[in-house]
């Protein structure tokens, strides 16, 4: 099976220690986490993790089951890059003097989608939001002029086909979970799986 980039989306309770519980599921298996973001979700009390790894689908599916097994985890989904809309944010700090004299700032803004976040006498901070290639491109442009600081955020992703977690959550709140709380990929492949 082919390795590719997967984004895992985890809906959880907001519990101290849960970040560690989830992180060690990867480190125990020596799987490198390329990016990890935790944030609120569309629901007030529910937290949302975005985790990016490069692995085969089989490995990712097993990881999601291990994640879902954790008591404070509501649900874990995994998606490849076609199935999500995603962004990363990068900040670039450069010397204002150099920038002002040597770079066509307007070109930066138009061609690379950069925004100016601050301009001070001594430095200027640009930001770019986008995919990895887009944030990388500006590094290349700015590097010759002395990039003082660079930082890029974790990936945040929205699942294209998701209808959000509101309906799911009400199912979780039932004493007896509704039958579709447990997804089952086997059932959808009935023919393939059950033929002798």
């Amino acid at each position: 099976m082919l390795q590719q980039e997967y984004t895992i989306t985890v809906y959880t309770e907001n519990q101290i220690g849960l970040l560690n519980r989830i992180a060690i599921i990867f480190s125990r298996r020596k799987i490198n986490v390329e990016s990890l973001n935790t944030s609120p979700s569309e629901i007030d009390s529910v937290h949302r993790f975005n985790i990016v790894i490069t692995e085969t689908e089989e490995v990712v599916r097993k990881l999601c089951r291990q994640i879902e097994k954790q008591v404070d985890v509501l649900k874990a989904y995994y998606n490849n890059n076609e199935e999500i809309v995603w962004q990363e944010l990068a900040l670039y700090k450069v010397s204002t003097d150099v920038i002002a004299t040597e770079v066509k700032v307007e070109r930066l803004l138009s061609q690379y989608g950069a925004r100016v976040v601050v301009i001070r006498k001594d430095y200027t901070v640009f930001s770019v939001t986008g995919h990895r290639e887009e944030t990388d491109r500006l590094i290349q442009v700015l590097e010759p002029y002395g990039l003082i600081e660079f930082v890029r955020s974790a990936r945040v992703a929205i699942i294209k086909s998701s209808e959000g977690f509101h309906r799911k959550l009400t199912q979780f709140e039932y004493r007896e979970p509704a039958s579709d709380v447990v997804e089952n990929e086997f059932l959808n492949q009935q023919e393939k799986v059950f033929s002798m």
């Binding site: 959880t12 309770e13 008591v71 404070d72 985890v73 509501l74 959550l169 979780f172 709140e173 004493r175 979970p177 509704a178 039958s179 709380v181 447990v182 089952n184 059932l187």
Partner: peptide, 12 residues
């Protein structure tokens, strides 16, 4: 009951 915890999967 704990909402994020399902002790038993639903039987199919």
């Amino acid at each position: 009951h704990i909402r994020s915890y399902r002790p038993k999967p639903v039987i199919r």
